[in-house]
Design a protein around this nucleic acid. Structure first.
Lengths: 348, 348
DNA sequence: GGAACAATTGGAAGCGCTTCCAATTTATTG
DNA sequence: CAATAAATTGGAAGCGCTTCCAATTGTTCC
């Protein structure tokens, strides 16, 4: 069975090709009854538009912009952005959409303005934002005012009310990590958080505390430090937590890089991992498999998230203007705990 | 000035559209004189085919397959493969080509057969291979016999004679690293090599020795160990090299992961980096910026390499069957040394 | 009830290209 | 040199879709 065309649909629905086209493109002036008939025929034939033909016929291709935060004025060398973009590009290729990637220096005071300008210049149908940009409500609103659909990746709860978002259930992930360590007999915990602006990562801590509370462990029993997601900050925080008067047996870090730093602190302090101290990360980036011992962590499906972001944007673009009555959707992608050797049974 | 079309070219060249199409697609039955005229018109107008139209008119799209080596039966979580694929996908999107990615378990004894089958199934116009597959001459020949063009990435010298290849000048890179350390006053070196099968990485060691020889330092003075590119092996090898009777002041590792392992060994041995021991990596993967101190390393433009691989394949596909008289081209992409804090002036 | 209008629907052109087939030119051969 | 084959060129039909414009149908209002 070869691909069916718009004419097949038209024939089956008993209407003209033009009408099918109108239905397909959400255009007005089609009776509901006819629209249904067409949609029905589409479903029956498994019809899908041929993007080549559509574009050739003059329809502008979908254009999306993916904005990465960078610490410099160049493309970041990070796995996070690579994996996300890889997923997004795959989806874009599949959907025949164009994906433009920009790197914006997050330390630049004009970063937001720059993003707005790029979105306008590229005359795009949608923007994909990652933290910290995805957590900037002013930027989010400005983009919306610019008639530009936005999907935020790993955005915090505030952003989830403003724009479409995609992310793991951060709270649940924190909960799962706590449950894993509790099951191994740990009762005294350290936690290295990320920067407060990174809203979604805060959820990890909340979920972690929730699980502890369920197990009858008070939040005060947790020694929390605040890092900035870098190896160096993980090292520093962990050194404070793992001094000679250490009481904790497990140290949870809000991302893998900090966990790798904590690992070094533990090694330096002469502690055995996981016998003396269990250390866990978050994200399951390659570093978690590289270090020794390999990190127990929470896998975050970055490629999948990038894919979904583009798919969502494509769908939004096809469905016309946003309906202010419908709140934006927060899509949760599944995470899972990856147990490796950096955690194990707590010492008696 | 709007895009010119095939008819513009035809008009300018004074031929029919059909003839232009023939020239564009390298088809026979065009007089050399006419062909030149057309090509000239193409150049003059800056004409580029519209891929949408071409595909709509029935021409099959270019299909390339990118094969990654994996250690499991799943997609590897590595930066190397992500960055390469990202570059390849970007290029494919730009050229309107289709890129299919496969992950093949390199431990599977049938890996080669699997790749051949996939290349055949996908009915593709070309395959991009990475190590270790790019260094398998049997596979390379079989693929060629299957009428499938191959580009090898970071392939060894043997493969460079068999198929088109892309990579950095590994020998020169090794040389550069030695020069960097020599300039900092280091005279006694350790070197952690990769597995012998990884042919291109061997070049790094050769270049390194060459620079030492130029500086009047004998190869025997270098304490070489062989790792397998993992953090763990770097840790183990470094522990042997950095014992109490250590004589070296600089330790060069053939990739970043092993250097990260060596870093841990040094920390454990109570050595200061780089004051007591300089440690360097290779590849400039994200781990090199994550560890402490950040690694001096050689940057390898992975995304660019992926891009070029697709571009080369597209070019090959457009130029008909391979000419056995013309040897395959080995394309060198520029590398550069990234000095960071893990290397510094040698102690007196 | 019919004029004036708005809401629907369909017809047909054409986006830029490949490719089949027929027309033309050139080379080959008895 | 005519007859035949081979190489070269051009004409025209679509590929699957959007969109302009005309035709049709349904509504409204005096």
């Amino acid at each position: 069975m070869s691909k069916s065309t718009i004419d097949d649909v038209a024939a089956l629905a008993g209407v003209a090709r033009t009408t099918v086209s109108r239905v397909l493109n959400n255009q007005p002036n089609v009776r509901a009854e006819v629209r249904d008939k067409v949609l029905h025929a589409v479903a029956q034939l498994g019809y899908r538009v041929n993007l080549q033909a559509r574009q050739l016929a003059g329809k502008k291709a979908l254009r999306f912009v993916l904005v990465h935060a960078s610490d410099f004025d160049s493309e970041p060398n990070s796995y996070f952005s690579s994996a996300l973009e890889l997923g997004a590009t795959r989806a874009a290729a599949r959907l025949g959409a164009q994906l433009i990637t920009h790197f914006v220096n997050q330390n630049d005071p004009h970063a937001a303005r720059q993003i707005l300008a790029q979105a306008a210049d590229d005359h795009c149908n949608g923007v994909i934002l990652t933290p910290p940009f995805a957590d900037d409500p002013v930027l989010l609103r400005a983009l919306a005012a610019q008639d530009c659909r936005v999907v935020g990746i790993a955005a915090g709860p505030e952003s989830q009310l403003l724009v479409e978002t995609i992310g793991i259930d951060e709270v649940r992930a924190g909960y799962d990590m706590a449950a894993h360590l509790l099951a191994q007999g740990h009762r005294a915990f350290g936690f290295i958080k990320g920067p407060a602006q990174h809203r979604s990562a805060e959820g990890r801590y909340d979920g972690f505390l929730a699980a502890l509370a369920e197990a009858g462990i008070a939040g005060q029993a947790v020694q929390a430090e605040r890092g900035n997601f870098t190896f160096r900050s993980g090292l520093d925080c962990a050194q404070r937590l793992l001094g000679p008067d250490r009481t904790i047996t497990a140290l949870v870090c809000a991302n893998d890089d900090m966990a790798a730093g904590a690992l070094l602190a533990a090694h330096k302090a002469g502690l055995r991992i996981p016998q003396d101290i269990a250390i866990t990360g978050f994200d399951d980036t390659p570093v978690s498999e590289i270090v020794w011992p390999p990190l127990t962590t929470i896998h975050q499906p970055l490629r999948r998230m990038g894919e979904r972001a583009v798919e969502r944007l494509a769908q939004l673009a096809g469905s016309g203007a946003p309906d202010p009555a419908v709140p934006p959707l927060h899509e949760i992608v599944p995470h899972h705990l990856v147990p490796r050797d950096s955690s194990g049974l707590a010492a008696q």
